[in-house]
Design a binder for these strands. Sequence first.
DNA 1: TGCGTAAATGAGAATCATTCTTATTTTCAT
DNA 2: ATGAAAATAAGAATGATTCTCATTTACGCA
Lengths: 152, 152
Amino acid sequence: MPKATNQDLKKMLRDHELKATSQRIALLKLLNNTYKHFDAEELYLELHKRQKNVSRATIYRSLEALVDQELVNKLDFGDGRMRYECSRGGDDHHDHLICEQCGKIVEFLNIEIEAQQLAVCEENGFLPTTHTMYIFGICADCRNLESEPEIG
Amino acid sequence: MPKATNQDLKKMLRDHELKATSQRIALLKLLNNTYKHFDAEELYLELHKRQKNVSRATIYRSLEALVDQELVNKLDFGDGRMRYECSRGGDDHHDHLICEQCGKIVEFLNIEIEAQQLAVCEENGFLPTTHTMYIFGICADCRNLESEPEIG
DNA sequence: TGCGTAAATGAGAATCATTCTTATTTTCAT
DNA sequence: ATGAAAATAAGAATGATTCTCATTTACGCA
Ligand SMILES: [Mn+2]
Ligand SMILES: [Mn+2]
Ligand SMILES: [Zn+2]
Ligand SMILES: [Zn+2]
């Protein structure tokens, strides 16, 4: 995955009817270049570090626009702030395991679950538009730490 | 399902180490007597109507206690406020379909999905504690209204 | 390349659900 | 019935997000 150039990002924005402002380019670049799941404040602090002229309002407004255009996914882990991750094309749907101890996110896709979700909708005459599924617990790393011998 | 008496509710609270205050009894009664999914403000307004002495802070504090004791489930439909529903014993886990048009909630349980969730966790060495799954879309009733002939 | 206008931004006020604080009231074991 | 511990009321505080509006910027067009 070659990192997107500024020109790539500019085009990406314009292809979605969004004006290519320096703020939006920087935001999209940050999201595109990692697999992290950021909250708005993290994005604000990171961009503010590099580029003095970014405000929180712009972060929120730009994220909203990017989510509308499906360039970015908005996630709700249930802790009071939204997370944002780059959306990599049309087929990147995935769900998340969330470690309640270290915060690590593991992505997964289970086609049987996806199929059963559609089946449930059909049984209920329900026309689905989106779904969210988060499994909370303790990740493999944190479990290993827990079982570490106390002395040794 | 015979409606729980005040004595039943009192015992229910005390069995969970919670003092049986009039506010908690009223709150638990309200939740126990319907299958609705309430937000905190709805509960506040409803209780306040009947019993002058209830404050929002108490609603929130009591809900937290009831959720801790697993007498009540806390749900996050992603619209900025939490919902609360009565938890009916240990085997009542279910997930939700949420109509984006009329707000109707349909509950469901799909054991294949539940099984696959555990499988995913196992594959990742992940120890699950809880999960949330919400499917958003348009319910059967709203779909029918939509397809209603415009004149007729 | 320079202009004009519509759109985007910055700064901070406003909002809204939820949590916190503190003085007062209530519960419940004794 | 009594008193210590816990719960409550009222409203202030918090924190994420949205809104306001004066100022700046992007970009289609001359
Ligand atoms: Mn993800
Ligand atoms: Mn339910
Ligand atoms: Zn972990
Ligand atoms: Zn509906």
